[in-house]
């Protein structure tokens, strides 16, 4: 989780990732940020994120992103 936090803070350091639950819905992350994030996640966690996983629910909070990562790492 800490590694994920570092990646997120590299993109938007001003966000409080512990409490923020609307990264996409509140337009804190735009599509540039999402693609940057996905690239970083794939590199760091050695997972494959596909277009079908690109839904707001998976990226709205640090917890949601972590859950997606856990799911992908299990596969």
């Amino acid at each position: 989780m800490e590694e994920l936090r570092e990646i997120l803070e590299g993109i938007h350091p001003e966000v409080d990732y512990d409490s923020e639950t609307g990264l996409i819905d509140r337009r804190i992350f735009d599509s540039f940020d999402v693609i940057t994030l996905v690239g970083e996640l794939m590199d760091h966690f050695d997972v494959e994120i596909t277009a079908e996983q690109m839904v707001p629910d998976h990226f709205n909070s640090m917890q949601a992103i972590w859950s997606l990562l856990e799911e992908l790492m299990e596969e």
């Binding site: 599509s31 693609i35 690239g39 494959e48 596909t50 690109m54």
Partner: peptide
């Protein structure tokens, strides 16, 4: 365009490998 063209292309393996 974002959901059906931009995202699929951005996370496409070939594009990522090119990156």
């Amino acid at each position: 365009f974002r959901d059906y063209i931009f995202y699929p292309l951005s996370v496409n393996k070939r594009v990522l490998n090119l990156g």
